[in-house]
Each structure stands twice: as C-alpha cells, then as structure tokens.
C-alpha cells in the first residue's frame, strides 16, 4: 500500500503527541503513586437495608482510627442517601457507594471524584478534597425519567470545623 511521504509525517506527529500525553500520565502516576480505582466487591442490592454496612443508620461519614474517613452512601432513583454530607478538607476519604436499583454514576464537580455505581457491586474511591465550600453531587449516568433531578449536596469544611461539628452532634455526615 502506497502512503504519501507527507501523510506519513503527519501520522508520525499525531502519534508523537499521543505518546507524549500517555508518557506524561504514566510518569505522573508513578511519581505521585496514583493507582486507578480497582476495588471489586459484590453485595446484594436487594438487601442493602439488612446489610451490616449499608443499613440506614450506618450511612454517612465514619472516622477511622488513623484519622481518615470512610463515607458510605446509597444511590437510588432519584437521590443519594444521606441527602447532605459535611466533610473535612485535606483528609483522606474513602467513598463507598452502592446502588439499590439501576446503574448510577456520581460526580462531584470541581473535584476529580467521579465513578460509576453498578448494582451488585461496591464502588470504592479514595480521594482528598482540598477546597472548602459547597459542592453538588450529581448522578452522571442516565438512570430514568428523574435522572436530571438526582443530586444532593456536600459541604466541605476545615478539619477543625468538622471536629467541632462532630462534637456538637450537628454533622449529618
């Protein structure tokens, strides 16, 4: 097959740009120790309310002995439960999500937090929230007629504020 010399040069430039992007991503992943989320854990979506981890009174943020947080949330048509959360900034947070019906997605704009929530599986993502403020939490996977209304709120406060809220028992998370 004959390929024009000029066309080969153009293809080489495109491939070089793609190779540059991939090497930058891989380089920074190695340098910063970034691992793609890879948790595979199954759960019975029909019995979440009976499960030890995702029963209604277990949802929200829980502080671990090392100071990090585990946030457990349930996604269902058309909302995330609990509806509001207050979380500390600059704290290692492990989000654990389950769906009680269909496939949902969760995205917190202005952060890198985004994942798909597949029924039957626990979606787990570890992250840090740097900036304090109010964030919406949106479903980004079409889940039915009410998909556009499926959202809730996260309030990110400083670590000190979060500790104070927890002591006063006002924290929804």
């Amino acid at each position: 097959m004959h390929i024009d010399k000029l066309e080969k040069k153009w293809a080489a430039i495109s491939l070089l740009i793609a190779a540059l992007f991939v090497s930058v991503i891989l380089g920074s992943a190695f340098f910063h120790g970034i691992h793609a989320p890879s948790n595979v854990e199954t759960i019975d979506s029909a019995k979440l309310h009976l499960s030890a981890e995702f029963a209604e009174d277990k949802l929200g943020a829980q502080q671990n002995p090392d100071g990090s947080l585990t946030v457990r949330m349930v996604a269902g048509r058309y909302g995330f439960f609990p509806k509001t959360l207050t979380l500390p900034a600059e704290t290692n947070i492990t989000f654990r999500w389950v769906s009680l019906d269909v496939i949902h997605g969760v995205h917190i704009p202005m952060t890198n937090m985004s994942t798909m929530i597949v029924p039957g599986y626990v979606a787990q993502v570890k992250t840090l929230l740097h900036q304090t403020g109010d964030y919406p939490m949106l479903c980004n996977e079409y889940c039915g007629m009410g998909h556009a209304h499926m959202w809730s709120n996260i309030k990110v406060v400083s670590k000190e504020q979060w500790q104070a809220l927890n002591k006063q028992g006002e924290n929804h998370g």
Partner: peptide, 12 residues
Amino acid sequence: YYGVFLPRGPIG
C-alpha cells in the same frame, strides 16, 4: 493536566 487535574488531588 498540571494546572487543573493534578491539583484537585488524585483518586484511587
């Protein structure tokens, strides 16, 4: 990548 994505913090 360096100005927006990485400063928002990695996910894992």
